[in-house]
Structures are given as structure tokens and as C-alpha cells.
Nucleic acid binder design. Structure first.
Lengths: 123, 123
DNA sequence: ATTAGTGGTTACCCGCCGGTAACCAGAACC
DNA sequence: GGTTCTGGTTACCGGCGGGTAACCACTAAT
């Protein structure tokens, strides 16, 4: 869900967080990337999400101009989603988050390796 | 709250979202910036947050190595928080989000201006 | 004696987020 | 006639996120 109090703030950063500041929207944008993708594919690829929540999040992303929804009048129905210019402009930010995570996880990972070593029985 | 399912994913991006993918943590990191700041100041500056939630979020951020907590043994107590190297490395990402928001909000704003123009009666 | 100031912690409890399951259209296939 | 495929929508309901308020320690000031 969007946070209405945040979205109506006079601070641009707060508005941005109110718009995309939950766990699903960055996941969806990241999975979409530069391709067109169908609802069923998103449902299959994104871990743990339910169809109900996916529908909600996609609708909000469309309302916020981050993606475009194209419904083909076929049977069975076919709907494709693709990022708008605004959504595409967000991808570099998600890439930066990946780099950030990996850079500083390597440091923590060193600690975990030590823990694994501790599992080897000592004599 | 952290999302444990996300945090234990084998995908680095998913883990990152599980760690900082809520609305409060980006807000806190952004407000802290490069300075040291006290609990009471954070409580006063960050809009709508309760002390309970602020306490929780600060604890998790410390556990995740994003900030450092320094408690001075004084009376009345004084506690200062400052971003770690990992937290500081996240600031450019938040800056990019601000730029992104402003860039594409201007376009939406232009649309609104057009609507206002339509309110002028035509002859 | 009491109040203020600081940084919490804890118990209580309401609201609503979100999961589950059922249902829909309408053609194609067996 | 029944089943499958697709992209939803809706009703129902349990769990828990998070707000509120009370409480704590300890000193200085009034």
C-alpha cells in the first residue's frame, strides 16, 4: 500500500518513499527490467507474492506512471506490463542497491565463513 | 520490521530489500546524513514516527551494521547515532531517489498546469 | 516533595494488511 | 459435458504491526 501521509508531504524525498517505499515495488520493477512481461510470469518469478497483492501493486505502479499496462483483447486474455520512462529511470538506482549490498555483505560474509569453520569438530 | 524470508534469500537484491525495504529505514538514514544525532532529535524530526517504532528500526539498523550507537554514561542519559561506512555508502542512493522523484514529478506537474489552463474559459 | 529532562521498555489492544479460496469469462480441446 | 488456460475480483478472516499510555532510572532545580 501507498502511504498517503507520506505522499502528501511537502518533501520530495518523503513523497518518493511514500510511493515506492515498500518491499514489493522495488522487487517488481527489478524483475521487469527492460522487457515486457505478463502477469502470470511476474506471479511465477516473484517469490512469496500473492496474486491479490501483485494486482494491487501493479495498479498503483500504473497510477504513479511507473509502468504501462497493455491488455490484448484475446481469449484467453493476455496482459503485458512494461516500465515507463520513469520506471526505466529507476533501474540504475536498483543496480546501485545491488552493488551496495554485495560490497558490504562480503565483509559480513567473512564473519560467517569463520562460523562455518567453527562447526568442524576440534580435537 | 525486517522480512526474514527476504533476508534469507539467495538473491543479493532480495536480501537488500528485506533489510532496508520499508518506509522508515530510508527516512532515518536520510535524516541522519553525515552527522551524529540524538534519539530525541530523530523523534522530533521524522514525521509521524512513534518512539517504539523508532527504537525498533534503530536497533535493526545497528544489527545490520548500517549505523553505530554511542551511549554516554551520563544523567540524564545521552545516546548518539551515526551512520557507519555502510550507511554512508547508502546516502548517494537516497540522493538519486530525490533526483528521480523531482525529475518525473516536474512532468506530472506540467500535466496539472495544463489542466489548470483548461479552466480558463475559451471564447 | 515534586517536576523536568532523556532514552528507552513493556503491556494492552484495535485496525487493517494480506493470505486463502471461490468464482468469473469464453474459446479450444478431448 | 467437462477441463484447461489466463488475469483477474471478491468475501472472509486471522495475525500482527504499530499506536497509546504507563513506567523506569537518576539528577538537578524549584
Amino acid at each position: 500500500m501507498r502511504d498517503e501521509k507520506f505522499c502528501s508531504s511537502n518533501c520530495p524525498f518523503t513523497r518518493a518513499i511514500g510511493t515506492i517505499g515498500n518491499k514489493w515495488k522495488p522487487m517488481i520493477i527489478n524483475v521487469m527490467g527492460t522487457r515486457s512481461i505478463r502477469f502470470g510470469q511476474l506471479d511465477a518469478i516473484i517469490p512469496f507474492i500473492s496474486r491479490k497483492v501483485l494486482t494491487e501493486q501493479l495498479k498503483e505502479l500504473e497510477e504513479d506512471g511507473i509502468l504501462e499496462r497493455i491488455a490484448y483483447k484475446e481469449l484467453p486474455p493476455r496482459v503485458e506490463y512494461k516500465l515507463s520512462e520513469k520506471g526505466l529511470a529507476f533501474l540504475p538506482i536498483l543496480e546501485a542497491i545491488k552493488v551496495w549490498q554485495r560490497d558490504f555483505e562480503a565483509i559480513e560474509g567473512a564473519g560467517n565463513l569463520a562460523d562455518v569453520g567453527d562447526l568442524i569438530p576440534h580435537q
